[in-house]
Amino acid sequence: MSVALLFAVSGLTSVGIYLITARSLSRIVLGFSLLGHAAVLALLAAGGPAGDAPLADHASIESSANPLPQALSLTAIVISFGLTLFLLALARRQHVLTGDDLVEDDIEDQRIAHLEEVELGSEHDLSDKELDGEDADS
């Protein structure tokens, strides 16, 4: 197994994980692109040593690279390409609705945060709109 591939996989994974812990969806998109590359490289590394292009009349079975992981990688790349676009579309929609592309807290977290505020004596009343924003807007 190639050491260079190994380093590339670990580098891409760590940067990717760091990016997807961000709040803004555009960073998360970048993170997932990197993670996708890392996974594809890991698949390639799993396929054994490098070799000639695995074409039927150009290489012998002994000298050619393992074609199976390459086929799997291609499928994975296509899927991750489509999903990146979908995530960008989501980010765009969120931008239209709220003016930013931040991933918001879920309803349970919002409720707990609100309870804390109430205990601290803050007066502001939690309207339906804040809690179940599903019905109130659109």
């Binding site: 997807i20 969806l25 998360i28 997932f32 993670l35 996708g36 996974a39 594809v40 890991a42 698949l43 994975a76 899927i79 999903l83 979908f86 995530l87 989501l90 929609r93 969120q94 609705l97 709220t98 991933v103 918001e104 879920d106 179940d132 924003g133 599903e134 019905d135 807007d137 659109s138």
Partner: peptide, 23 residues
């Protein structure tokens, strides 16, 4: 709708992460 986009973002990110782990 706003609630759908909010929840959809979490849903997509979680599942995408699981898919990457699958790979």
């Amino acid at each position: 709708r706003r609630g759908q986009i909010r929840a959809g973002m979490t849903y997509v990110v979680m599942n995408l992460f699981a898919s990457t782990l699958f790979l």
